[in-house]
Nucleic acid binder design. Structure first.
Lengths: 200, 200
DNA sequence: CAGTTCTGGTACTGACAAGTACCGGAACTG
DNA sequence: CAGTTCCGGTACTTGTCAGTACCAGAACTG
């Protein structure tokens, strides 16, 4: 329990560089082909520096993925266009192309990670899909509160539809998903399920 | 082009034994941890016998998975209860527990296969998810034809919802899916999307 | 019979990568 | 100063496993 006192202090900045390099590499080659040697090279670090912080490759990737999720979404930060359809359209529009590219690549890379253990799969799923579901849940609940969506709608279930189908597309079929397809899904499945009149 | 004539003929029965063993092992340990040595041991075969038929582990697993799909579903073979909801309920009820266990296990095992190449991913997806989607599409189209579902419904899109969410649950979240949950999804999402009045 | 290709089984090669062990040097404590 | 723990970098150990090479025997052709 005695935190050793002497010696050179650990540079927290190296953690960031290593995790960033891990995430980049994960998007490019996937978990299986990610090597700690390459992570070290890109981070400008030694392998010892990595293994001093994380006991295994799995823990390293887990930490890197965990960083992605960030804070849970808050309603105040979400789009507010006046209609649920508009809110969802705004939600699907990627903030920056880089963000979009990264989450797509990470999802692809995670496919191989999923096979390692349920524990890793859960963490990955939570980090990637969880915030997306929660954002939709908040938007839908607000639509219920303002009367756009009839009360009693099963928001929790419907909020899972597009994230699940997106994850399926990326992880299983391995095809990209574009915003038009997502909006088609919203018009054909999500809004009818919530008993919202279709547009046009 | 000259098919050599002499020599001991190849025993087609070994193909079956090897592919069965491959499928079994795939459900148990997944693609990454599947070794050709263990496949050979379970099939009571030599590794040479495997590699004489399939040039690589990937091709072997691909052949094993391809066997699963079988013939495309035909409307005459699908349940016909009089209502779309009843048909879907009958579709979800597994024919035999063994079938159910196997497809669940294979989906789990395939998670790691998906990361290998888009080609393998596509084959796996087609074999596993394709028939499920097609069955639902046929049932929904029949419901349209008999007037239970309004014309103009986007059957092709809605038919993908539960297969995608099932695959997502199995492959990404790695949790089992039970029939009650699927029927809840039918009542809350699928039927409303098709403009069918909810039961009760 | 001889010649060929199959069979299960074992042993081997070759490549790859996780994790460990050091190195010389840097940054801290006391 | 001495002592400790960090740093990047390199070399090494260790284990795994796909794929190959053989073997001795079996099943065929002619």
């Amino acid at each position: 329990m005695t935190t050793s006192t002497g010696g050179r202090p650990r540079d927290a900045g190296r953690d960031v560089a290593i995790l960033e390099a891990t995430l980049d590499l994960l998007t490019e080659v996937g978990y299986d082909d990610l090597t700690t040697a390459e992570v070290a090279r890109r981070a400008g670090a030694g392998k010892a520096t990595i293994y001093r912080r994380w006991p295994s490759k799995a823990e390293l990737v887990l930490a890197a993925v965990g960083r992605m999720g960030g804070d849970p979404p808050r309603l105040a930060d979400l789009p507010d266009t006046g209609t649920l359809r508009g809110d969802l359209a705004a939600l699907f529009r990627p903030q920056t192309p880089a963000d979009d590219e990264r989450s797509l690549g990470v999802m692809r890379g995670l496919t191989s990670l999923l096979s390692q253990s349920p524990e890793l799969a859960e963490a990955a799923s939570n980090a990637m899909v969880g915030p997306f579901v929660e954002s939709q849940r908040l938007l839908m609940q607000r639509a219920v509160d303002r009367g756009e969506v009839p009360d009693g709608a099963d928001v929790a279930t419907v909020a899972r539809v597009t994230p699940a189908m997106t994850a399926f597309r990326l992880a299983v079929e391995r095809r990209p998903v574009d915003v038009d397809e997502l909006m088609h899904l919203v018009d054909v499945v999500v809004l009818p399920a919530l008993r919202v009149a279709p547009p046009g």
